[in-house]
Simulated scan of single mutants.
Amino acid sequence: MATQADNATADPAAAPRSPFERIGGHEAMHRITERFYDLMENAPEYAELRAMHAPDLAPMRASLPSFLAGWAGGPRDWFNTNPGKCMVSMHSPFPIDRNTAGQWAEAMQRAIRESEVADREIADAMADVLANMARGMAKG
């Protein structure tokens, strides 16, 4: 008698989909990233956050979708390219306080909310987890 796990192995369509797949894959991660950095660059409420970043956001615009993909269960290219690194360790040199952490969290939640995604429920859950992670980086 076949178990449900056996059936999932035999039928890839029956296997649970990762959050990366559910949200819409690379395309959705790129839309979210573009909206996030557009907000950071143009919305005055994120000015302090923007000031902490390099003048040219192009490298981060290119890197963040790959990080989000791997973090959400998709291809792990970012993690393979950056072995042993994580977002917390990469941001530890920056003077992140509650205000700037809150700006990041709010901008990411807004970017996800305003982006076209395949599964709104998983996108909203991802927004909440990322916001909590950002707020957890605040020093003091």
Rank of each mutant, 00 (worst) to 15 (best):
N80C: 00
N132D: 13
D128R: 15
D11F: 15
M133S: 12
F67K: 04
A10P: 04
Y46M: 03
P93A: 06
I112R: 04
D56E: 06
G25W: 07
G84V: 06
P65V: 06
G25C: 03
Q109V: 10
Q109I: 09
P44V: 03
M52L: 14
D6Y: 06
M108F: 14
I112D: 01
R76I: 11
A54I: 02
F67S: 00
H30E: 13
A5G: 00
E116M: 14
R120M: 13
R113K: 12
G136T: 11
S66N: 06
D11W: 11
R76P: 10
S115F: 09
N42C: 06
M108C: 13
A5Y: 01
A47S: 14
Q4P: 01
A15M: 14
A54F: 01
E116R: 13
E114I: 05
R31D: 11
Q103G: 06
D97V: 03
A107K: 14
A138N: 12
G70V: 01
A58W: 03
P55R: 10
F67W: 07
A69I: 00
P65R: 04
S115V: 15
E106L: 14
E27S: 05
M1Q: 07
R22L: 15
F79M: 09
D38G: 09
R22T: 09
T9Y: 15
M126K: 05
A10N: 11
Y46V: 02
Q109Y: 08
R98D: 12
M29I: 04
R113S: 12
A131H: 13
L64C: 05
R110M: 12
R98G: 14
A2M: 10
L39T: 11
R22K: 15
F36T: 07
M29G: 12
A14C: 01
T3F: 00
T100I: 14
A28H: 01
R61M: 08
A2C: 01
N132I: 13
N82C: 04
E27R: 08
W104M: 13
A134V: 13
E41S: 15
L130D: 02
G140D: 14
R17M: 04
A72Y: 00
A134W: 09
